[in-house]
Amino acid sequence: MTPLAGAEQLTQSIGLVAAAVDGAPVDRYENPTPDSEWRVKDLVNHIAMMLVLTRDAGARTASDPALLTANPVPVLAGRPESEWALVVNGLAEPAAGAWSGTRAWQGEAALGGPPMPAEALGGILVAEFAVHAWDVAVATGQRLDVPESLARAMLGTYAREAPRMRGLGLLADEVPQDVHASLFERSLALSGRNPRWSSPCARGGKGCN
Rank of each mutant, 00 (worst) to 15 (best):
A151C: 13
S198A: 14
V126S: 01
G6W: 02
Q106A: 15
V17H: 06
R28V: 05
N45M: 07
P74E: 13
E148F: 08
M1C: 09
Q142K: 10
M50I: 05
M1S: 11
A96H: 01
E161K: 07
M50V: 06
W134L: 05
A109K: 01
V131P: 03
P25C: 12
P32S: 13
C208I: 14
D22F: 07
F184E: 00
L67S: 08
A92K: 00
T2C: 10
P147W: 13
G58A: 05
K41V: 15
G192Y: 08
R103F: 11
I124V: 15
L4P: 01
A189H: 01
P65S: 13
V26P: 04
P195Y: 05
G97K: 04
N209H: 15
V131R: 01
M116F: 11
P74Y: 14
P200H: 13
S199L: 09
G113H: 13
W38D: 08
A118W: 02
R193Y: 07
V21W: 03
G156L: 08
T102G: 09
P74C: 14
Q9G: 02
Q12K: 10
S182M: 10
A189W: 00
A66Q: 15
L51T: 04
R79K: 15
S63C: 11
P176V: 05
W105C: 02
L121K: 01
G205I: 08
P195V: 07
